[in-house]
Amino acid sequence: MATPIKDVVLDENRPKTLLAEKHADFIIKLFHSEDNYEFAITDYLRMSGMYWGLTALDLLHKRDKLLRVDLFDFIKSCQDPESGGISASLNHDPHLLHTLSAVQILCMYDKIDILDIEGVVKYVASLQQPDGSFSGDKWGEIDTRFSFCAVATLSLLKRMDSIDVDKAVKFIETCKNFDGGFGSRPLSESHAGLIYCCLGFLSITNRLDIVDRDTLAWWLCERQLPSGGLNGRPEKLPDVCYSWWVLSSLKLLGRLHWISSTDLENFIMACQDGETGGISDRPGDVADPYHTLFGLAALSLLGYSNIKMVNPTYCMPQEVIDRLGLKPQVLA
C-alpha cells in the first residue's frame, strides 16, 4: 500500500543557482528599514535578527557592505548594567538568546571589548540551575536551547570555568531519548533543532562521546524527504532551517555524507525568492533573514563555492572561530 508522505513538490521554474547578490541586497535593505512596520514590530528579537542578517552577509563575503557606526553603540546599550545580560533591543529585559547573539556579532567584528565581559559571564553563570540546566532568563524557563546558548557564549569569551560543566553535561545526557535524539527537557520528543543545540553543547564541552552516534545519525538522515528537503520530526513538512540543524548535527557526528547533498541543494535553491532575494522556509513562501542565514549556512556545509566556510558548532564563519583559537569537537 502506498503511504502518503508529507512533502512538497519542486516547481520546474524554480531558481536553480545561488542568487548571492540578491540575498545580500535583501539583507542590506532590512538593515535600512527603520521606518518599516515589520522592523518596528520585530524589536523583541532585534539582536538575534541582526546576528542572522550580519552572519548571512559575512558568509556571502559582503560584510563590508554594511558598516553602520551605530551598530556597536546599539549593542553596548542593550547590556543591562545590573544583571550583565543583553536584551533584544532597548527597553527589553536581558535574555540568554540575545546575549549569545550579541557576543557572536561582536566576535565576528572583533569588538568584544566594548562589552562588560565580566557582567556577561556573571549573568550566564547566574542562570545555571542546581540540576545543571540553564534557564533563559530570570523567570526560569528551562530548555536545552539555553544550555547551548550558555556554553556557546562562555566559550566565545573563554570563560567556561565560570559554570559547573560536568553538571551541565549530566543534564543534557538526561534529555537523550530512545531514538538517539534529544528534546527540550528529559523525555521530551526528539526534535532536530534541539538535537543541534545538544550536539553543539557537547561539541563545545568536548563530550560528543555520550551520543549514540550512528543511531542518532540514522534518525537525522531519515529527516530527508523525496523533495530533498529536511524536516525536524517524523511526518512534518520540510523547512530550510532544518537544513542547517540536521546538516550541522550530521557534520558534528562525522556523517554529513549520509544524506543526498544534491537533493538538499536543489531544495534550498528552490526556496530562494528570485524577485526580492532572501530564502524562505519552503518554496513560494515569504523570505526572511532567519531562513536566509540557515539556507546559506547549509550550502556552506555542503561545500558550496562562493560561500565562506561556516563552523558547524557556532554557525559563524570558520575564520572567526580560528582567529579566536577555538577548536570545538567534531567526530571524524
Binding site: 512596520y37 518596528a40 514590530i41
Partner: peptide, 17 residues
C-alpha cells in the same frame, strides 16, 4: 522606540502599535 527616529507609519495598525 529605540533609536529616537520617528517611525514613518503608513498603515493604520502600525500607528496603534
Amino acid at each position: 522606540q529605540d533609536d529616537g527616529e520617528e517611525p514613518v507609519v503608513t498603515i493604520a495598525y502600525s500607528k496603534e502599535f
